[in-house]
């Protein structure tokens, strides 16, 4: 009888923690060398990567195609201003709270939107995001329709403030990506991958589809809240029409689809690609959107599995989520 051993990932993956740590360490020292405008750009890119990663967990794996996650971006942004300015809590602690408070909103909302499926789910989440915006506008303490400024950093010099926001964003993206990788390597990750490929079969094999989806809906709401908090920190102002804008959903869909739906690597690549595109094209007005649209169509036509699917050819996986079985070689005559 042959015996087998199970391993996770390939030889490449063994070096990954080293590379991952090295990149993070390098990024941590960047504010020492980098001019302020570049630090701001890094923060924007980090936020985009967080958003893409979260939306992909929800839609790419959970099959929950939502166009209303800006609800949690908005809640996170307002929560940061509320905790930091109105409650006077340390702004970095406020950022953590801004992420966690989203779960409090996500849990009851999940019971509402999980009654819907497919297109109805998508529209339902959008409607809820709009309703939350309309409620927020009514709260005069939060600045009503004109929004509210963040004053918690006013005692800090510009250079120090931007470095502080940069480090907050770096720590956040590190934790978000690490949690995502660990999640996808866990039983929940196995369940999510099965749900991604065939929901009915997953249920028949004992995966509690609804419960897994609810869990992921709650978890990603933390990520969206953190991203919202970071946006508030870096803009120093929150305006309801901007922060609750459905544009966030459009951008997230674009990043995840061009990068590759249903992988960990795809959304990161998609977010970086989108970041460079918008950075180079944003001064060109309407042309910017046209070029973005054309590129989106081209990429999904040429590489239906997104940029990552095109590069990896389904053979490479950076984060060792795949299992590998190898037969144990038996000694002669043993």
């Amino acid at each position: 009888m042959a015996t087998y051993s199970v391993s996770r990932g390939t030889r490449l993956n063994k070096f990954l923690p080293v590379i991952f740590s090295a990149v993070v360490a390098l990024l941590a020292f960047l504010p020492k060398f980098l001019q302020i405008p570049y630090q701001v750009k890094f923060v924007q890119a980090f936020i985009l990567i967080i958003l893409a990663t979260m939306w992909n967990l929800l839609a790419g794996f959970g099959g929950l195609v939502s166009i209303g996650q800006q609800a949690f971006i908005g809640i996170g942004a307002y929560a940061l201003v509320y905790f930091a300015d109105i409650q006077g809590i340390n702004p970095f602690l406020s950022l953590i709270l801004a992420g966690l408070v989203c779960v409090v909103f996500a849990l009851p909302l999940s019971f509402l939107v999980f009654r819907l499926s497919g297109g109805y789910f998508a529209i339902g989440t959008w409607v809820i995001a709009e309703i939350i915006k309309l409620f927020t506008v009514q709260i005069s303490q939060l600045g009503g329709g004109s929004g509210i400024s963040l004053g918690a950093f006013s005692g800090m010099g510009r250079e120090m403030r931007i470095a502080a926001v940069y480090w907050s964003a770096l720590v956040t993206i590190f934790l978000v990506l690490l949690s995502t990788i660990l999640l996808m390597r866990s039983k929940v990750g196995l369940a999510l991958t099965a749900i991604r490929d065939d929901q009915t079969a997953a249920g028949v094999l004992g995966v509690n589809v609804q419960q897994t989806r609810r869990l992921i809906f709650l978890l990603v709401s933390i990520g969206f809240g953190l991203a919202g908090g970071l946006i508030a920190m870096s803009n120093l102002r929150v305006q309801p029409d901007d922060i609750f804008s459905v544009n966030y959903s459009a951008i997230m869909i674009f990043m995840v689809v061009i990068g590759g739906l249903g992988s960990i690597e795809g959304p990161i690549i998609g977010a970086v690609a989108y970041y460079f595109l918008q950075d180079k094209l944003k001064d060109h007005g309407t042309l910017y959107l046209i070029i973005l649209g054309v590129l989106g169509i081209l990429i999904v036509t040429i590489a239906p599995r997104g940029l990552w699917g095109f590069i990896s050819r389904e053979k490479i996986s950076l984060f060792a989520t795949k299992y590998r079985i190898s037969e144990n070689k038996q000694k002669e005559g043993a």
């Binding site: 991604r196 490929d197 299992y323």
Partner: peptide, 9 residues
Amino acid sequence: PFSEMTVYE
């Protein structure tokens, strides 16, 4: 089948 998962998975 879960098409993109391996047989083992």
